[in-house]
Simulated scan of single mutants.
Amino acid sequence: MTEAPRLDRQVCFALYSASRAATAVYRPVLEDLGLTYPQYLVMLVLWESEPRGVKELGDELGLDSGTLSPLLKRLEAMGLVERRRSGEDERRVVVHLTPTGRALSTRAGAIPQRLADAAGLSGEELEQLRTTLERLTQALHRAH
């Protein structure tokens, strides 16, 4: 007889729980910045390199336009980004940081360390975990 699956042995539940716990650690800092976690992810991508096309942002974050558009609209209303039509291709919308959005990166700089401190893992352990999770994500994307 096959044993019934147990919740405490499911990788999917461990990932779900870890994600929720990490987001909870970020929440107070993000609230101070006036950002939600998804908005923070958009800003991270733009702080790395901007301007970015809306499609490019969606591809990098794994978000469809129905999810990304309201995020960008809210960030624009907050004065952190501007959406503009591309000069080369009028069909393409490009997202630029405003000076306020750019300045916010300084205040957000300590956020990754906060997670590291809360996790109690060394930098090497966190890097190994991130690498493993990226490999898992890539494999699962290929599987479907």
Rank of each mutant, 00 (worst) to 15 (best):
S69Y: 08
L80D: 00
E60D: 05
L75G: 13
E90V: 14
S86W: 10
G109C: 02
V54Y: 12
R102I: 01
L63F: 14
E56D: 15
K73W: 07
E50N: 13
L97S: 02
T98S: 15
V42W: 03
Q113L: 13
G87A: 14
E48C: 07
E50V: 03
Y40S: 05
H96F: 15
Y37A: 04
L80M: 02
M43P: 04
D89T: 03
P51Y: 08
L44R: 15
S86K: 11
G53Y: 06
L44H: 08
R102F: 06
R83I: 03
R84C: 00
G109K: 11
R74F: 04
S105L: 03
L72K: 11
S86G: 13
M43L: 14
A77C: 01
P99C: 11
G79C: 04
T36I: 00
P38I: 08
G87W: 10
T67P: 00
R107G: 05
V81M: 00
S86I: 05
K55M: 00
R84D: 02
R85F: 06
V93M: 07
L72W: 06
P112G: 05
R91N: 04
G66N: 12
A110L: 01
P38E: 11
L61G: 03
Q39K: 08
E48Y: 06
E82I: 05
A77I: 00
L68G: 11
E82M: 09
R83A: 11
P51S: 12
D59K: 13
L104Y: 09
V81Q: 03
K55Y: 02
R102N: 02
V94E: 11
A77F: 00
Y37T: 01
R84T: 05
E56L: 13
L46F: 10
K73N: 10
